[in-house]
């Protein structure tokens, strides 16, 4: 299923259902998914909006490579990464990762891998707008483990 960048809000449930509908009926024994959502706070400050910048061409290529790496490490049937770009509001989904496999271990582990790998490798940058109107670039991601 691969990689999608959305410049408008997306519904993780709809995207997950679309993903699952593409898979061979009866082959899937496990589906794991993760949704990352924008918080209204960060580093002790209230955040009221965020802009996600990316490097068109490179970002998609990196996400495709992350999916290929997962395919090489686990016996999975298919994987999906959906990521927002542009202007985002608190409560809106930022990212969806999903993996289908015959058994749950591969689905869980590969889904976690997709998320951690994209956070450390893919060229996205977050700029927050605080409640007082100030803007600031997020300098680092929070640890995932």
């Amino acid at each position: 299923m691969g990689v999608q960048l959305h410049s408008e809000p997306f519904d993780p449930g709809v995207e997950l259902a679309r993903f699952e509908a593409t898979l061979p009926v009866g082959s899937v024994g496990a589906t794991a998914s993760f949704t990352g959502t924008m918080r209204n706070h960060n580093e002790g400050d209230q955040v009221c909006a965020m802009t996600l910048e990316h490097y068109p061409g490179m970002t998609e290529k990196q996400l495709e490579e992350v999916v290929q790496d997962a395919r090489q490490q686990w016996d999975i049937i298919d994987a999906l990464i959906v990521h927002r770009v542009g202007d985002i509001l608190p409560g809106q989904p930022i990212v969806l990762t999903a993996v289908c496999s015959a058994h749950r271990a591969a689905a869980f582990d590969a889904c976690r891998f997709l998320m951690e790998a994209l956070k450390s490798r893919a060229t996205f940058w977050k700029k927050e707008t605080l409640l007082n109107g100030e803007t600031r670039w997020v300098e680092k991601n929070t640890p995932g483990h």
Binding site: G36, L52, H54, Y55, M58, H83, I94, V95, M115, L118, K119, S120, R121, A122, T123, F124, W125, K126, W137, V138, E139, K140, N141
Partner: peptide, 9 residues
Amino acid sequence: AFFPPVTGG
């Protein structure tokens, strides 16, 4: 291209 550390996801 030049860019700061990435912060997606």
